[in-house]
Amino acid sequence: MARTGTKIWIVFLGTLSLSLLLAAVSPGSLPAEKAMDLVERVMAVPEWPARMVRNLVLKTVDLAAGERSLRERIDRLEQENLALRGLLQTTINYAPGAGAGEGHVTLRPPTSWWSEIRIDKGSREGIRPGMAVVLDGALVGKVSRAESNSSWVELVTSSSLYIPVVVDETRDLGVLNGDGNGLVWLLYIPVEKDLKPGMSVSTALVSELLPPGIPIGRIAGAGEEIGGYRLYRITLKADLSRLYKVKVLTGGRF
């Protein structure tokens, strides 16, 4: 009897310790992400009927509201808008054959809430690392890693993502960087420039990977001055608290 009680304690403490150890060590690690991708691939088989039902319901609702045609029209206009913005900045044919693939967000780890998401589209759908990811036409991040059936997207609020941007009204160039806690800052703007709140910011041509002219957000206010440069806080155009579906802009220089 006593031996059984001891065995129960050992199993309880063992499983609990292992859980806590995993929770402390594994988040954000590559093996954990690989394991997550593997589980997603395996579970895709039994989940197929549920996904079909969901898509069927969504399509029915879309059709009933006449939203589908409107979305397609918006997609076309977004593409056209993107191409025109690119043409305004350069004569280089940036991304022939560029398109947009829609993906559902399948994972947003709480420990890296403002840093990354996983979507259900991958290299099989033509997605490659570096591609821009947008929500309602505004940049939310870029693809950091593409598996065959899923991709990881680094969000603009991530502290390790630096995006070359341009202030649309003044054509000043700077770099956008998140703080990992939901805030985004515009860096490397000389203090004498005096940018105003409300000015819009979009991706700049100087980036090799992101198409130019994708709207990102607006200047919310000036921050501190560091070494002759002033920080500006950016209010994002895309609502990162409502990330359910995103679009990946395929094409570009890779």
């Binding site: 859980s19 947003r108 780890p109």
Partner: peptide
């Protein structure tokens, strides 16, 4: 956790 939460060990704990 591996499928949904992204923090392996949290739900198991």
């Amino acid at each position: 956790d591996l499928r949904w939460t992204g923090v392996p060990g949290m739900t198991s704990a």
